[in-house]
């Protein structure tokens, strides 16, 4: 695609579908893990069938409690969270959460289950437990979890551990496995490559950035556990840079996210190499964000004569 646009076309003539490693999505926009519950929560506020995809809250092999409050703190153009991955666990997920997701999937929305664990084996067991589940299309591994066998260092900050957890999940699963990279590393591309070499189908970029917010008067952290994960508009430039780096270093598709608020934001990620995008924190502020972003992306393409949105992927002009 050249740097010049063509004549406008009708919005309905723009093909906004995308293909993420063989998974065709009717548009590039999904809701990000941990920011949209298990689905029904948001269905009262938005038309879920307008989504390209939906990523569930992280699921572990057993239910997790999560952290004590306070769990969130607002910061400049963003927020910190330390929810602690409170989740219902695999069994309750299959029993109580899949009926809604099966219907959502039937309405043409791709359903991706985010997977968490404290050991490689726990990831593997979730993957096996989700085999044959017809309510879902793919798995997304959250490797920002602490690896308890390795002294609590996140899987996602060590190439070997990231590769291992990817291989084990791929081995256990009958679905494409996406790996969600942690930005809390010095070289995110090598993490992406380690996952690719071990069978990842796609890479989600990025999870939250570790940060700290304190109350000066009490000289205490605002969150109960101290540090938290930063998300929202504040992280967008970091996320764009990492999307660009990973998509150039790796040959599997990248799903971009981090501070997407508008159609322009989402399109920027695609230009920087993302085949699809996810929206997280913006859902908290305006639960209809995703719906509006999809519309805005179609409109933008129509006005510039972009007949196929996927033609924009990785077209960043360097110089």
């Amino acid at each position: 695609m050249s740097t010049r646009w063509s004549d406008p076309i009708a919005p309905e003539d723009v093909d906004i579908s995308v293909d993420v490693a063989g998974l065709v999505m009717k548009n590039p926009v999904s809701l990000a893990s941990g920011t949209a519950g298990y689905g029904p929560e948001l269905s009262h506020a938005m038309d879920m069938s307008t989504l390209g995809g939906f990523v569930t809250k992280g699921i572990a092999v057993t239910p997790w409690e999560g952290n004590a409050p306070p769990r969130i703190a607002e910061t400049s153009a963003g927020m910190l969270n330390a929810i602690g991955l409170q989740n219902v666990g695999l069994r309750a997920f299959l029993e109580h959460k899949t009926p809604y997701l099966r219907d959502l999937r039937a309405s043409g929305v791709r359903v991706i289950v985010n997977v968490i664990g404290k050991t490689v084996d726990e990831y593997h067991r979730v993957a096996k437990g989700l085999r044959d589940c017809d309510a879902i299309d793919a798995l997304e591994l959250n490797i920002s979890c602490p690896n308890i066998k390795e002294g609590g260092i996140a899987f996602g900050t060590d190439c070997v551990a990231a590769g291992e957890v990817t291989a084990a999940t791929v081995e256990g699963s009958d679905k494409p496995v996406w790996v969600k990279l942690s930005p809390n590393v010095s070289d995110i591309s090598s993490m992406g490559l380690a996952c690719e070499e071990n069978g990842a189908a796609a890479l989600s970029v990025i999870n939250t950035l570790v940060g700290l917010s304190i109350d000066l008067e009490s000289r205490r952290p605002r969150l109960s556990i101290g540090k938290g994960g930063l998300s929202g508009p504040a992280i967008k430039p970091v996320a764009l840079r990492m999307t660009d780096e990973v998509s150039r270093a790796c040959s599997i598709p990248v799903v971009g996210m981090g501070g997407i608020w508008t159609a322009t934001d989402a399109l920027e990620f695609m230009v920087c190499g993302a085949s699809a995008v996810q929206i997280g924190t913006a859902n908290f502020v305006n639960p209809r964000t995703a719906e509006q972003v999809v519309q805005g992306m179609r409109q933008w393409c129509a006005e510039r004569g972009v007949a196929k949105i996927s033609d924009l992927v990785g077209t960043l002009q360097r110089k």
Partner: peptide, 17 residues
């Protein structure tokens, strides 16, 4: 009145024991 992020059960921030 806990610290709330979203008000609709998606951020899981406002918990009470």
């Amino acid at each position: 009145e806990t610290m709330m992020g979203c008000g609709i059960g998606i951020c899981m921030g406002c918990v009470i024991e």
